[in-house]
């Protein structure tokens, strides 16, 4: 009962979805959609478990005045404050997503626009700095592969610039020449010469044809994104999909059953 029934439910649900896919007639045609709605409803209930866990975790810290309890209090105040804003707006307008609440201090949309959006946007914006520091470590042109990574990344960045394409390309050229000289000095003559030649060539081209460089930069970026980037991404995606299909078959047949042991 505790282990076998869940396996049967998984098998029936999985097979049912596959079968309905191959029978596009009523009542089967709409059943897949109906089951997705059921899964969404289940997701709604599951969210309650998550919120309960969040409240318990932070509530315990506040009650026991553990280390950093004040921040847990902030989390709880943010949670209940936003819930209250949502409920009040819901009761007042019949829906929590009422645009008029944007002009009311404490309205649900007001909280969304002036608290959640800035926090979320700035969190992601902050990543720009950490990505830059990660790039410094990852992009040191030690090997051929790392150089490819470096050049592709910089070309895409230059191609997406709205201005300053020429100085940025010259910086790239200087970086390539410097990396090439460094390789020459540490006795990697071929690789060093290729890098230096690339840098000199790129710099000379940009200086000789500045107008073309500005025009070509977005095109190069576009080509990089649509050909080599798409090719490798597609290869990975096809591999991931084949893995997903294999794992799904294992789950439906009950070979993979770790999801039961976790509860």
């Amino acid at each position: 009962m505790k282990r076998t029934l869940p396996l049967i439910i998984t098998f029936l649900a999985g097979v049912f979805v596959v079968v309905t896919f191959f029978i596009p007639r009523e009542p089967f045609g709409s059943l897949e959609q109906r089951m997705l709605v059921w899964a969404s409803i289940l997701g709604g209930f599951t969210l309650l478990l998550g919120i309960d866990s969040l409240i318990k975790h932070h509530g315990r810290k506040v009650a026991r005045m553990e280390k950093d309890w004040f921040y847990s209090l902030v989390t709880l105040l943010g949670l209940f404050g936003t819930l209250a804003a949502g409920i009040v707006t819901w009761v007042k307008y019949g829906t929590p997503l009422e645009l008029a609440s944007l002009n009311e201090v404490g309205g649900f949309f007001w909280v969304y626009k002036w608290v959640m959006v800035p926090l979320q946007g700035t969190m992601f914006a902050l990543l720009a700095f950490f990505i830059a520091s990660a790039a410094y470590r990852a992009f040191r042109a030690r090997t051929f592969d790392a150089t490819l990574l470096l050049v592709a990344a910089i070309l895409v960045m230059i191609g997406r610039l709205s201005m300053g394409v020429i100085p940025a390309t010259l910086v790239l050229a200087i970086l390539l020449v410097a990396a090439g000289i460094h390789r020459l000095l540490i006795r990697k003559p071929v690789f060093g010469a290729v890098l230096a030649a690339l840098g000199v060539g790129l710099g000379a081209l940009v200086l000789a044809f500045p107008q073309d460089a500005v025009r070509l930069a977005p095109q190069v970026q576009e080509w990089l994104m649509s050909v080599p980037q798409t090719a490798a991404r597609r290869g990975i995606l096809i591999g991931v999909t084949l893995g997903t299909i294999a794992m799904s078959i294992r789950i439906i047949l009950g070979i993979e059953r770790t999801y039961i042991s976790s509860t």
Binding site: P6, A13, F21, S248, I251, I252, I260, T263
Partner: peptide
């Protein structure tokens, strides 16, 4: 709670085959 989890997992696995393909 394993029953709804099993249902969701089964649904996801079914879609993992048809949807992925």
């Amino acid at each position: 709670s394993r029953w709804p989890i099993a249902f969701t997992i089964g649904l996801g696995a079914g879609l993992g085959i048809t949807g992925s393909i």
